[in-house]
Each structure stands twice: as C-alpha cells, then as structure tokens.
Design a protein around this nucleic acid. Structure first.
Lengths: 221, 221
DNA sequence: AGCTATATTTTGAATAGTCAAAACAAAACT
DNA sequence: AGTTTTGTTTTGACTATTCAAAATATAGCT
C-alpha cells in the first residue's frame, strides 16, 4: 500500500515538527493539525490511521511521533522535495524564492527513475538551494546544528549556509541583501531591546529582526 | 473550481476517443469507461457531473462529447503531457519508450510557470518524441491526417513522423528496427492474407502486422 | 480540592471517487 | 411481434478525507 499525498504530507509535517522541537518529545496534535492545515479532529482521525499502519506512535491526549518506518518514508519525501528544488534552480533556471510551491506538488508524483536521474544530473548534491541537506537514497540525513545570525560570534567572518524559511518574499529580501547561502558576512552587533541584529553583507549594513535572524544559519570560517 | 486529476483524465480520454472516432459521433459510455479504466456505472456518474459543470454534452443511452470548454481543458492537459514527454527525452535523457508513464503523473501537477519554462527551454517544439503535435498555450492543436504504413504508396521513400501507441515494448521494438520518427523508410508490399506489411528500414527488411502498421504514421517526401 | 481555560477526541455529516450487482433500454435476431 | 444480447443506468455500499460542533480530558490557577 503506497502512501497517498495526504499521508506523505502528514509524515513530512511530523518530521519537520520533530526536528524543530527537542527530539524525544511527542508532537502535540494541535501543532500537527496546524502544520498540515486541517481541523484538529481531522488530525486525530488521520493519526489513528497512521498508527494502525505502523507509521507513527500515538499517545492519546499527549501527541505523536514517527515510527522508524514513518521516518524512513518522511525522509524519502524530503529527498524528493529537495532534489526537485535543486533541479528547478540549477537546470530550469528558476529562482530559489519560487521553487518551494512547485516542489511541494511534484514531490508526490515523481518516479524513482526520475528522482535518481535528477540526482545524477546534479552531481549528487548535498544540499538544496536553501542549504537544506538532501537525504541519500537509503534515507540517511545529515543534519549538523549550525549557528544562526542570533547565536554566532560578533565581528567574525561567517558564511551563510542555510535558510530555514520558505516564504518567498523573505527569500527575495535575503537575496537582495546579499544574504543567500554561500555569501560571506559578519554580524556587527545585536540589540535585544530593539529585537534586532545588524549585519555587514557585502558593502551593505542590514538590520533585521531577531526572528528573521534566527532563520539564517551560518558557518564560522 | 480547478479540475481534479480524475476529471482531467476523463476529459483527456474523451478527447482521444473523439479524435480516433469519426467526429460528430458521440463517444459511447462503455468505451469511455474502458479508456479511463473504471466500471461502466462509474463513468455514467462522472459524466453526469461533468455535464453539470458544462464540460461535456451527454445524451443518456447514446454517448458523450466534449463541450468547447471541455475541449479547451483537454487540450491544455495534452499540451502539458506532450511538453513533459519532450522535456524528459531532450533534457533528462530518458528513452522515448519510457516517458509516457511519468508524463501521465506529472501532467496533473506542473504549474503554468513550469510548463512555459520547459516550452522555452525546448525552443517551442511542435511535436513530442512520438511525433504527436503539441498544442499551443492558447489551445490550438494542429492535427494533420497522415498516411500510415497501411495506406501509403508502395516502394516510395517516406518518413516516419508519428507513432500513435504508447506501449513501451512496441516503442522499443520500433526503435530497434529503425522505425522511429524522423527515419526514412519504404513500404515494399502488403499481404492482406497474412495480415502483414513489409518495410525496408535502413538496411533491414522488417515485417509487421497490419495493426502495428496502422500505428506508424508517415509523410511522403 | 474545585473551577476554569485549553487542548483533544468523538460524533455526525459531507464530498469525491469508486465498485458490484440489479434494473432497464436499445438493438439485433429470429 | 417476441425474445435474446448487449450496453447503460440505478442502487446501495464502501474508502479516504475533510469539517463543525459537542463531549471530554488535562493542565493551570485559585
């Protein structure tokens, strides 16, 4: 029984949620419902079915967690999604700001043949255009914990490596400010009262809010 | 209300059926059900819904026909399908024998943006890898009536231009016999008793059944 | 402990698509 | 005209997915 698009979306949402919360915590129903974009009751129903199929472990009134089978599946969906994004940017010449929506649809229908073809054409890339790591065909997913603009040392050259937000206007903004993955920058200072971070990118001095700053991950050179 | 994959498939099947029958004839329910791969009753139910939406004209116990709105939609699906096939062959390096299945899935989810990008990358191709004409973005579909290996003059050089069958092993067979679109050949003779046609392709002499021969369309040089 | 606020589950119902089998219409053949 | 064959429609039922609103549980606060 191969998983429907709907099931794949629940698994993917769960995978993201688990990653963004401290692991070992169950994902609460409300959060999952929210992430998938359905009413709470719908999530409950679906999760019970997923638990039946052995894709998740479910504790009523507490939350859900992916089983190992569920994790495997979620990871493969993530692989498809990210390879597609990389393909759309590198081969089709689309903007990194726009590819998420298309990938979201395509990830549920591309055949293995096609995915592996893309992977080969792209030279087996390690990350997608947003710097998100691409799982291997056997489900292995490297996921180092980076610093962000919020946590890295000040006045030290660092490289943007990953952006954990798919909002297209945010991505376009970063691009315009020379804050795309690969670009070298420096955090000049942070002002917790003003809830802001000041960055030196290229010749430019940019000030962004801390929430945005936390989405921009970096590596120290 | 944008059409579901299911609706798109009914419209596409209807479009093909209309083309392969003399036009002005309604497509009988049974044939449609067969083409879509559902039980007869299911087709009846669906067709009544499509008629409600104004996509088809339906006469109980007689048959169905696409309305102009239905034709427009079917044509756009065909455009997506054929551009995708051409893309998979030209850009992704896949075999013309294999692309149909993938295109069948992708045609329902690719965005307009993506379709137009592919079209541009391919230089606005007129036909797909099987020689099927690609409708333009505004729904215009050129569809000249070709000769086939069954109807063309004997011992006259002709060019294979189109193959109206997606069966992957048939396509592989044609490829091996140098009978792909673009290749120059000659029909040597036909034997109606043996139900066969003898063709000179490249250096080779190939004999195929008349049913197969009718699927290979040609142009006289 | 008792009450309130919040989150979760249940219930009842809806939509899209499907099937099998019974009922029926049209065509074809005596 | 009467009967059989063939094709079509109807009926009743099922799966997957969803929602709104009622019922219930847990957690938080007094």
């Amino acid at each position: 029984m191969l998983p429907s698009s709907t099931v794949e979306n629940y698994l993917k949402a769960l995978h993201q949620a688990e990653a963004s919360m401290g692991n070992e915590t169950l994902v609460p129903m409300g959060q999952l419902a929210n992430a998938v974009g359905v009413a709470p009751g719908t999530a409950t129903t679906m999760v019970k079915a997923l638990a039946e199929s052995g894709l998740v472990e479910y504790e009523p009134y507490v939350g859900v967690r992916l089983s190992s089978a569920g994790t495997r599946l979620a990871t493969l969906v993530l692989r498809r999604h990210r390879l597609i994004e990389q393909f759309l940017v590198e081969v089709m010449g689309m903007s990194w700001a726009d590819v998420h929506e298309d990938a979201e649809q395509l990830e549920h229908v591309v055949s293995d043949r096609l995915v592996e073809r893309m992977d080969a054409m792209l030279g087996h890339p390690a990350v997608d255009p947003h710097g998100d790591p691409i799982p291997t065909a056997d489900g292995a997913l490297a996921d180092p914990d980076y610093h962000s603009l919020l946590t890295c040392p000040l006045s030290t050259p660092v490289t943007v490596t990953r952006v954990t937000d798919q909002n297209s206007s945010f991505l376009r903004f970063l691009e315009a400010q020379e804050l795309k993955p690969g670009q070298s920058i420096e955090v000049e200072n942070r002002n917790s009262a003003a809830d802001s971070v000041q960055v030196l990118a290229g010749e430019r001095r940019v000030t962004i809010g801390t929430n945005a700053a936390s989405k921009v991950l970096i590596e120290i050179l």
